[in-house]
Amino acid sequence: MSTGQTDNEIISRVLQGEQNAYAELVNRYQNYVFTLTLRMIKSREDAEEVAQDVFIKAYRYLSDFRGESKFSTWLYTIVNTTCITFLRKKKLEVYSLDNEKVFEMADSQDSGFRANMVEQKSRVNMVNEAIALLSPDDGEIITLFYKAEQNLEEISKILGIETNTVKVRLHRARIRLKEKMENHFSEEIKNIY
């Protein structure tokens, strides 16, 4: 149940020893964190494990949160680094933005995915599934901007890149998402446009 307290108020309580107050923060951000990890890691099981790890790390280093940025921005920075570490450990390639393999991988996922597409997708499902087909980089940046309510400057802090680079990457990610939707959900899109 939400206490109506701000993140910083809850953090103060946790830092004063009220460990249970941390559950409020977990409840508040679990969907955001899980969505982000899932966009990068793709497997639900692994994404959930990583998301839990993110909250554990955030708790462990909570004293380092100085309140200079939003708690969510700080938390998503941990999401970003934890996901990359996980992907490296799993020896999966973290594909760069311009890597053609991204599209090959996404396309190979598409074929299997499309075979299971028996019923008409709702708009929301369609978007979520199209985002899931994007590369981890693209999926992350789109999720941060649209779902995690982070502006370009905050995303720049999270990803450790220049704001202008964020802008370009977001722009490219949206183009690729649009292409994915046009290529794989053409029937649904006809009903939209």
Binding site: Q19, A23, N27, T35, Q52, I56, R60, V127, Y146
Partner: peptide, 29 residues
């Protein structure tokens, strides 16, 4: 459409799992 996309939800035990884990931990200085 992107704005209307929904957040994914983890399992129902998610918060409980995290809280069980952190009960064994201390906040680092």
């Amino acid at each position: 459409l992107l704005k209307s996309s929904e957040l994914e939800q983890p399992s129902l035990r998610f918060t409980k799992n995290v809280m069980e884990e952190i009960s064994r931990l201390y906040i680092a200085p």
